[in-house]
């Protein structure tokens, strides 16, 4: 296959990028705005994805299940935050990974309900029908023989851009000013009466809801869900995107997602004179080097503001 001509393949890579973009926008709220080092972010995506999957496979209409899945992810954020947000930053980071792993191990073990390692099939519910009707509609508009992946690609990116715009809009509010204060110095924020704990909880829940939404699109893309889709590595890839694009920069998130998604999924289809599993390993070496290089030489990322970066 000539990869540059394989439109369907690029549509897939870009859809993956879009899902990552939404996922990392959630991280921006938590890490960039509030300074919460959430290393268990993938768990919220898992909750969005599996909630949707479990609801639709149990007869709940997809259109109803989507908002519930997002809300459940937000509730998970609150439930995780209540006991853990009082911990210091490094402990919070470890505990959030641990919580994510507990969830994944749980999903893996409850095979009767979740399919376990065999996967939860047909988790995307009515999406296939929606996709077909959209293709028919586009066909009617004269866009014939479009690739089947186009509708999801478009919708994912429209959503990512809308979420980014929403966050930028919120970003101008005094609410975000209080988040930034919490990020920099909790004591200073508390000393002038800002409810530190509540603000952190809100940021965690908002970020979790956005990750839940990413989980919904992930489910549409994959149709079947497996526990190994939600290993901690996904969170770390999210952090690579965050760091590359710039902590605090929504635009950087979008660009970072495309670059990283290309490195992860895209290079697979370029011709290298070495074995495929070796290429797979090198992809992640490159991602590791990007993280290291950025942290060493440009910690604010490509588009972050150096003056506003806080990494203590």
């Amino acid at each position: 296959m000539d990869p540059l001509l394989a439109f369907g393949f690029w549509a897939y890579v870009l859809t993956v990028a879009g899902v990552y973009a939404i996922f990392v926008l959630g991280l921006q709220v938590q890490v960039g705005d509030t300074g919460l080092l959430n290393f268990g972010h993938v768990a919220f995506m898992a909750i969005g994805a599996y909630s949707l999957g479990l609801m639709v496979t149990n007869g709940i209409p997809t259109i109803v299940a989507i908002p519930i899945a997002v809300v459940l992810a937000a509730i998970a954020g609150v439930l995780l935050g209540l006991p853990t947000l009082r911990l210091r930053g490094d402990y919070f980071a470890i505990v959030t990974i641990a919580a994510g792993e507990i969830l994944r191990i749980l999903v893996q073990n409850r095979q009767d309900e979740t399919g376990g390692t065999l996967g939860l099939r047909r988790a995307s519910g009515a999406w296939r029908d929606w996709n077909d009707s959209m293709l028919d509609w586009l066909d009617g508009l004269g866009l014939r023989d479009l690739d089947r992946r186009v509708p999801l690609l478009v919708i994912t990116w429209v959503t990512a851009v809308l979420v980014a715009l929403l966050l930028m809009h919120i970003g101008r509010s005094p609410w975000r000013r209080t988040l930034r204060a919490v990020r920099e110095n909790e004591d200073a924020a508390a000393a002038v009466g800002k409810p530190v704990f509540r603000l952190k909880l809100q940021a965690l829940a908002l970020g979790a809801a956005i990750a839940g939404l990413a989980g919904v699109y992930f489910t549409f893309l994959q149709t079947s869900l497996y526990p190994e889709n939600f290993e901690p590595i996904v969170t770390f890839i999210g952090f690579a995107i965050l760091i590359l694009g710039g902590i605090g920069s929504y635009f950087g998130t979008v660009l970072g997602s495309i670059v990283i998604a290309f490195i992860i999924s895209g290079v697979r289809f370029l011709d290298f004179p070495i074995a495929e599993d070796k290429v797979a390993a090198l992809r992640f070496v490159v991602i590791g080097l990007i993280i290291m290089g950025m942290m060493a030489f440009r910690p604010q990322g490509l588009f972050g503001k150096k003056e506003e970066l806080h990494l203590d």
Binding site: R180, N185, A188, E308
Partner: peptide, 21 residues
Amino acid sequence: DQLARAGMVRTFQLTRVLGKM
């Protein structure tokens, strides 16, 4: 934070200004 909202506001000996703001 509750005390501050009730009207008791303090400063710090080692200042805690928010340098990135």
